[in-house]
């Protein structure tokens, strides 16, 4: 993100562009350009919104570290794992589902590469596909959950159910949030919102970063929870 030298001279306008299309709480524009451009090292290494997103992801990772830590303590503290008489978790279906989610990571990766040259249509296309893959992932998860619940396997049925639904549920909620976010970004892009343009697409980038988080977390959870 190091700024090219020629931009420095006029970093007022550059910075200005970068700020648009962001969630309102990440809008740092209360002084017009005054704050963002005048303050700060002239060679600021990283865009503020991107940095904020990275930090937020750091916090999310620690949250998951907390529940994954709990899982590890409980799983390795247990005598039998899984406890006898529990339904088998759908390893294969979820494996396919894992592939779906990883694929969505790939489509997001491709989409983000298009940002620089601003192929608006293709970007929109990429975002839509990514969001759809995410939604498909959620649908499959939901379907498997209803089956498991049908077996009487619930959050409170035993510690196995507890950790399963907590870990997988927390992740699913995050995927849901990410899908909603992508949907909003995609529809704004579709409506030709002035929020995004060739040299102003941090808003899209942030949603992509968050998407990477939910994709990257999944294989870890899948490996931990589904394989005994």
């Amino acid at each position: 993100m190091a700024k090219p030298a020629e931009e420095k001279a006029d970093n007022l306008t550059i910075e200005k562009d970068v700020g648009q299309g962001l969630p309102p709480i990440l809008d740092d524009d209360s002084f017009g350009n005054g704050n963002r451009s005048n303050g700060g090292d002239s060679d600021r290494p990283i865009n503020s919104a991107v940095l904020a997103m990275l930090l937020f992801i750091g916090a999310e990772v620690m949250f998951f570290a907390g529940i994954i830590g709990a899982f590890i303590v409980l799983r390795f503290g247990a005598n039998d794992w899984p406890p006898p008489g529990q339904p088998r978790l759908p390893v294969v279906v979820t494996g396919i589902n894992t592939a779906i989610l990883l694929l969505s990571g790939l489509t997001m990766f491709k989409t983000k590469r298009l940002l620089k040259d601003w192929h608006r249509e293709k970007i929109l296309h990429g975002l839509t596909i990514t969001a759809l893959l995410g939604a498909l992932f959620l649908a499959v998860q939901g379907f498997e959950w209803t089956r498991l619940l049908g077996f009487g396997f619930t959050l409170s049925s035993n510690i196995y159910g507890t950790v399963f639904y907590t870990l997988i549920g927390c992740h699913a909620l995050h995927v849901l949030g990410a899908v909603i976010w992508l949907t909003i970004v995609a529809s704004r892009l579709r409506m030709n919102s002035p929020a995004y343009s060739a040299n102003n697409h941090v808003g899209i980038k942030l949603s992509g970063m968050y998407w990477y988080l939910v994709v990257a977390l999944w294989p870890v959870l899948y490996g931990l929870v589904y394989f005994n």
Partner: peptide, 20 residues
Amino acid sequence: PVLTSALAMLLFDRMAGTSF
């Protein structure tokens, strides 16, 4: 966030019948 995760588990134990 680690405290938050623990608090969430505690609330589950208290309100959703889990036994973390």
